[in-house]
Structure formats: C-alpha cells, structure tokens
Design a protein around this nucleic acid. Structure first.
Lengths: 352, 352
DNA sequence: CTGAAAGCGCTTACAG
DNA sequence: CTGAAAGCGCTTACAG
C-alpha cells in the first residue's frame, strides 16, 4: 500500500477538462508568462476560474523537474538539531533568514531531518537540498566534498559565515572577526594591559582562524607600547587553575576567550577563574572574542563583540534571491563581511 | 536564459549505458528495495561501480514526483508574520513542530510569505499548503471556508488548538482551557474569594469560549459556599479605573483576565489597576486565564496556567505523520486536549 | 491564438 | 533474474 495521500491532487489536466482547454493552455495561463498575454482574455479567465474552483496548486517537484525552479528557499545547518531554540547561538540567523525569505516572497524549507531518506544506498545527505531553488547554509564547519559537489553542479548556495575552502566559488555573508578581535585587543591595550592571553578552540574552523588572526595582528601592531600576547588552545578540560595561576603570576593581566557555538574556551576560562575565586576585572580582565549567549541574572556583562546575525540572515537571502533571479551579483557582495559591534562590559578595566 | 545548471547531471540512464544494463535495473539496485535482492550479485556490483565512477546523485525532484510524495510537512499560522520571534506567543509551537518533524524524518516547509504566488492569479492563500504532504495549522481564528475546502479534498491537516467549526473532520491538539480555568476559580475560592470578575476578549475565538465556560462552570459548582462571578468583555480600552473601583467597592476581591495572543484583557486590567495604584494581592487578587508572556525583572509572578505548547507541537506532528503513513488514528487522538499546568504566582492571596 | 508532443529523471507495475 | 513501458505533473519548443 502506497503511503500517498488518498486525495488525488488537482492537476492541470483537471483544470483543462473543467475549462474546456488543453493542459498546455492551463500551464501557460498559470505561469503568467509573456506567452499568456497572447491568449484570449476569456480563455484566461476560464482557466483561472477553474483553477480557483478546484483549489489548484502546482506540484513543486514536477515544476522543479520540468522547469528547474519552485519558489522555495532552503535553509540547512550542519548540526544535529535545527537551531529553532532561541538559546541556540544560530537562532538569530534563522530569524533573519525567515524574515527576508518572507519579504522576497519565497517560502522557507527547513532541512531539519538528519538522516535523509530511508532508502538503501548511503547517499550524500546534502543532495536533498536540491529540492529548493537555492539554499542558505550555516555552520562552523562545512563538509568540503559535499558542498563542492553542489557547487560543481552550480546549485545556488550562500553561506552564512566566511568560508575559504571553496575559493571564490562559494558566496557568503560573514562577520568581520579579524577587525573585531583586533579592536578588543586595542581596547585592552588602551586600558593598560601588556600581557594578554588568548584562549581558543582546538579545531580550526574559519571563524576561529579569523579571530586568532585579529588577535595576532593587533598584538604585532602595538609597537608603540609592545604587548605580549600568547595563544592557547583548549579542548575545554585541559585548562587548569594552576595554569591560570601561572599566567597571572607571570604578568598576564587580561584573558580573551574565543566564543564559539561549543562554548568550550569561554567555559574553560570561567570555570578555572571560579576555582581560583578570581574576580573581573579586579584580578584580571576578561573579554570574549564573540558575545555572551545568555546572561544569568546577577552575572556581569562580559566585554566582547556581537555579530549582526539577523542582518547576516537578511543579506544572505537577498544575495541568494538575486542569484536566482539571474541578476548580476558583484564579487564584493558575493563574498562580504559585516562589521561587528563592540560591547564594553563590566569584566574589563585597568590591570590590577 | 534558463537558470538550470548547464553541466548535464548524471542520470540513471548514463549508469545503465556504462554498466550495460537497463535504466530500470539501475533504479532497482540504487533503491535498495526488496526487489534488488533478486538481482544477480554481479549485476548489482556493476551498477554500483558505474554509479560511483560517474558520481551519480539522484534528482530529488524526480524521485519525489515519481514516488508521489514530498517528505515535506507544512506549517502555517494565520498571522501576518511568522512567529519566529521568540517573544511571539506562538513561538513555542514552532519549536515543538520543528523538533518532532525532524524526529519523524520530515523536512519542514514554513509558509512564510503572505501573498502566495508571484504569478498572476489571485488565489486562496491556503492553496499553496498543498505543496507539502500535509500541514500543521495554528491560529486563534481559522478561516472556515478555506480550511473546509482543504478538508474536502482530504488534504491532511492538523490544527494546534481546539476547533469546533469543522465537527470531527479536522484533527487537532488543543489545550484543556475549560478545566484549567475552573481550577483557577477553585483556587481563588479556596483562598476565600466569593466575588470574582472574569475579564475577557470581545471576539469569540474557540479558546476564549472554552476559558469562559470553565469560569462559569466552576462558579456554578461552588454551591457549598456560593461565589459570585460575572463576566466582562473588553476591547482593551473600555475598561476604566472607575469601573474597577466600582467592582472593588461592590465586594469583588479577585479579577481573572483572559490571556490571549492580543493581550487585550490582561493589559486592560493591569493598566487600570496601575491607575488606581492597586497592589496584588493586597488590594485584590489577580490571575490570568493563561500565562504571562514575558516577565520583566522585578515584576511579580502572576497566578495562572500554562499550556504545554511545545508538547502540543510534538503531538500535532505525530498525528499528522501517522495520518500520512496511513496508520489508523483513533478519534480520541485525532481530537485531543492536553492538560495545562497550574502556576501559583504572587498575585493571589486571601481577600483583603 | 491554441494544442499535440516531447521530455525533465525517476518509480513501479507488468512481462517475459 | 531483467527490461520495456507507462506514468508522476509539470514546462517548453514547435506546429498549425
């Protein structure tokens, strides 16, 4: 027994029969193309009336197959769960993408299910993105082979977050972490800090590389009053209280923790600081290369920066829509970085 | 110029040619169905090898067209903007629907764009829901004609929220507002209140009718120590401080405000109470038939009840998925009400 | 001005 | 054990 809905869908052929015209004519009228202008007004109204009467809606798969598009924009995140929970750091992207998709007149297809289809051969889960006209992608890591395959077939894709694995083939809307992180360092330097430790994730996502680069560049440029800066990688559990103690004893007065979706680095620093009973900025200044996800009542505002996630979602959809409509999209817009907003919090101040 | 990829995709026919078999055989092998077991082992390996060699990927649109289903679940709210904003009272439904859709292996189609088609004819906006295999509906009011049309064509639909406009034709997952509101009244009665005013919306959504019914029934049942209960309708602006003053002077010691997505009743009461400088529960007890949307810091917790929105989203998708898979769904599950959770807040206490 | 026909890339009875 | 054929519901040349 097939699992398809028992109600036979209304097809163009049904409309054609009711209106007394050919199925081709129905297609022409409903497509609203230039060709339709050539059709007699009464033929058109007959078709439209019949279509309305029957509650016709085109089958997206058929349309996609025959014409190559269906007015659907896809959204996929490389995560086990879709970021529909508001505390998910990716949630604001979803809001932005949804808003702009609606504004552009596209419906949004959320590729939520992880395992793809149930049928036999293990195929690339990304293939089903092709059901939509184009797709917005989000995620700290992008599977290179799968995304490349999609790009090879010229499937329209826009990534939220800078990517460099695909050269100029993959359009993206990213955040300028390099500049924002450098700004953070200059802020600390201005406050008087001369020994800063940067704690980061162990994995080399592009976003992590960018933040670290901003840190290193800023340290290097501060030649007027040279600052020491060291970069430490942590998996979250290998950062001990003794280690932090050692840094502070050795003259370190400020710590920057990279803020990613795993929260590994920031949690690690916060946890050992708590063990030490250290207080910000009395004992040392603490800042995030990124922003606080959710501040509990009573907790201090942590210095850092915020990327304009919602706006990134908007712009990603705008670029995708332009790509789909065949408009020329300049290279500067195809791969752009949006500035972050500096957050001056309560955890940074003059060195002790 | 068509927007489709110029690079011709690899099709099953290409594999068939390379492997020296028919396209049907390729389909059989790649589908991995039971039929494939019957195929000679060498035929299968030849096909698989060729497929791998050519980098074959099935076209999802074609597959879905041929198989007759989309694997798409729709979600539509009868609102101008989609409740993707976390402060929207419908947001938790979205989360629940998304989670369960993912769990059931369906992708989620958000019908976000208001105006439907881009092409000519002005059609019923609901028609495009048919794009999915089935659809979850949310909203205080349901457009009867449009939803009926969908039901007539046996399009699988599940409503979140009780509906009575469609008899037993429309499956739903609602909240038991009758019981919850009655419980609220009994709570106030137990505290000693004998004169209670119930302030509600002016429009007769099903949810509003249910809450009022719970109020009336509870008042009627409290015959051991009879309580007075009156129902007042407000559009939000016609409730004056003098009116409230009059109630209190007349012996009313508790006010229940209906909490809907418009917030009309609860805001009206809160606002005139503020004008009067009244304090809860010192001057009178205040409760919501529903729950506080967002509590500001310093504000009291308001007594009321919470519907299990996320769970309602889950169950709605489960019912829809069962409907789609052709499983029998019992009538008690087709139209069910989930119990609400009582919230004992800080705004109710003994009468002054 | 309108229709017959081919074709998009698959699945699925049905033959043999 | 395998293939020819019909068909899913559209779009799009191409005829007339």
């Amino acid at each position: 027994m097939s699992a398809r809905p028992q109600s036979r869908r209304i097809r163009q052929a049904d409309i054609a029969r009711l209106a007394g015209v050919s199925q081709t004519t129905v297609s022409l009228v409903l497509a609203g193309k230039a060709d339709a202008a050539a059709l007699a007004q009464e033929t058109r109204s007959a078709v439209l009336k019949a279509a309305r009467q029957l509650g016709y809606v085109a089958d997206p798969a058929a349309r996609r197959l025959a014409a190559g598009r269906n007015n659907l924009l896809g959204l996929h995140t490389f995560m086990p769960a879709f970021p529909v929970d508001q505390r998910n750091p990716y949630y604001p992207f979803l809001v932005g993408v949804e808003e702009e998709a609606a504004a552009q007149g596209y419906d949004l297809l959320l590729f939520t299910s992880a395992p793809a289809t149930g049928t036999g051969h293990r195929e690339d889960p990304l293939h089903r993105l092709r059901l939509a006209d184009g797709c917005v992608l989000i995620g700290r890591h992008a599977p290179v082979a799968e995304v490349s395959a999609l790009l090879d077939s010229e499937f329209p894709l826009v990534y939220i977050g800078r990517r460099e694995e695909f050269g100029d083939r993959l359009p993206y809307v990213g955040a300028d972490y390099v500049t924002a992180t450098a700004e953070l360092v200059r802020h600390l330097h201005m406050l008087g800090h001369r020994q800063i430790v940067y704690v980061r994730e162990t994995d080399d996502a592009v976003a992590s590389l960018d933040r670290e680069r901003g840190f290193r560049e800023a340290i290097r440029e501060l030649d007027a009053a040279p600052a020491g800066g060291s970069v430490v990688r942590t998996n979250g559990s290998d950062l001990t209280a003794d280690l932090l103690r050692g840094w502070l004893d050795g003259g370190v007065t400020a710590v920057i923790a990279e803020s990613t979706d795993t929260l590994a680095a920031e949690r690690a620093v916060q946890s050992v600081a708590a063990t030490l009973g250290a207080r910000y900025p009395t004992d040392f200044s603490f800042a995030l290369a990124g922003s606080q996800v959710a501040r509990e009542v009573g907790e201090p505002i942590i210095t850092g920066y915020r990327s304009l996630k919602r706006e990134m979602g908007h712009e990603a959809v705008r670029v995708l829509a332009d790509l789909l409509s065949g408009e020329h999209v300049s290279q500067t817009r195809r791969q752009q970085l949006l500035a972050c907003t500096f957050i001056e919090g309560e955890t940074t101040g003059p060195p002790p």
